[in-house]
Amino acid sequence: MALYTLRRLLNAIPILIGITIISFAIIHMAPGSPLSQFTEDPTIKQVDKDNMIKAYGLDKPLYVQYWDWVSGLVRGDLGVSLLKNQPVADLILERLPNTLLLTVTSFLLSLLIAIPLGILCAVRAHSRLDQIVSGFTFVGISIPGFWLGLMLIILFAVKLGWLPSGGLQTVNADFSLIDRIKHLTLPVLTMAAGEVAIWIRYVRSSMLEVINQDYMRTAKAKGLPGNSILFRHGFRNALIPLATLFGLALPGFFAGAAILEQVYSIPGMGRLFIEGAFQRDYPVLFAIVTVGAFLTVLGSILADVAYAALDPRVNLSKQEVRG
């Protein structure tokens, strides 16, 4: 298992290099540059612009720029934001906890609801309950997050005034847990709504595959209590395909909530990325894309390792190693 994991990690290196090259090229191909904002500004002289271009290294050939950036990356230097004049690493570290707070909380909340409900729907497949829950899941999947977010703001923040409409804490107030929870309630609910719907579908269908298996009948014939049959014998098997999906959810923790961070004015990674994209803040964009790519690859490796750990039939020593 350890050897397999190591091999998968080594295999990931060329993939990551490929991703950085492609994203580097694509971002540079996009029209405009970090200095576009100054082109129409009569107060800035051409000499100053040329100096800035030189200072940022934007006059060098693309491969040299890439090389400079990669060698910085290897040393752990993500560069300096062109607009904010701050190290990119600092910017990310400042924003990442906010994003994780939002994404991980809503992910855990949605699993907490989706796993029991999905199992229940599978156990009572095609019953009235299953039909009602299925109806809600389709609604949940169809409703766009930004729309739901705005509706919740109108209802709970504007009309009822129960909850704040945005931000992570009351301005100029000291940190308090209750204040933080109040601020998180709406964004977490908005985000979890869609996720719950999707995970209920996944858990239900995965559990349905399992529930009519012969070993479930054996477990019942042994006189085990219902919970033990459902969880130890049933869900334990249903987890195997779900593990893959959990792994794929990982990069979403990092970048996932871009739109909702905008709607709820949460200073997180998503907003940082959107700001960076609009202003062509190359170092910020590259850093986020790279971390995102890294997490995607890591997520798929984790998914495969979890898959192998959950299913004793998977024999890693004989399995072909895939990227």
Binding site: D214, A219, N237, D311, R313
Partner: peptide, 26 residues
């Protein structure tokens, strides 16, 4: 609940398909 106390304790059953009657992950 009552039936579960009898199953496996007082009345046991074995099935036709030994290949699929055991739980693969336990």
């Amino acid at each position: 609940k009552e039936m579960a106390k009898l199953r496996g304790r007082h009345i046991s059953m074995i099935f036709q398909e030994p290949m699929t009657s055991l739980n693969p992950v336990l």
